[in-house]
Amino acid sequence: MKLNLDVNTLIDTLAERLRDDPIMGKAPCMVGIRTGGVWIAERLHAALGLEMPLGVLDISFYRDDFSRVGLNPTVRPSDIPWDVEGSRIILVDDVLYTGRTIRAALNELFDYGRPDEVLLTTLVERPGCRELPICAKYVGATVNCDQAVKLSGPEPLELNIVERKAEVA
């Protein structure tokens, strides 16, 4: 079922907030988390006119549930086309839920180097379900915690409510 939120409007809101953030004056780089986060990041990257090419993280090898559920069969390589050491990074994901994806993404980023700053922004968040001390600086919208949402895309980008059994953390 489609969620009553327009993704393009949410992306515009995020771009606006980011434009006013001090990080914009410090030549930031952007990273999207595969898959949904990359779709959002591509839009934000273009809207903000960032100089450095967009980085892509696939956190499959960094998940903390490998020994319980195995490997994501659609894993692909990450691609960070600039030096992470000393960089200022805008990290983008679609849904912030338990915080475990972001934990994995931070660990992977730090395996590339030591960034000076990482700012997290997500299209939506489900508050009250966090299992780790992680919060985003900017979120497009907040959805009810018992509503599992998933972004579909890349064209058109739509937020859908997921049936319980198909839910992905």
Partner: peptide
């Protein structure tokens, strides 16, 4: 092919093999 496909993903964009924490422990 499952093994061959997965092997490709261990190479990064520079053709190097990155260390990953998959089998820690």
């Amino acid at each position: 092919t499952e093994i061959l496909d997965l092997a490709e993903t261990f190479f990064d964009a520079n053709g190097e093999l990155r260390k990953v924490p998959l089998l820690r422990g």
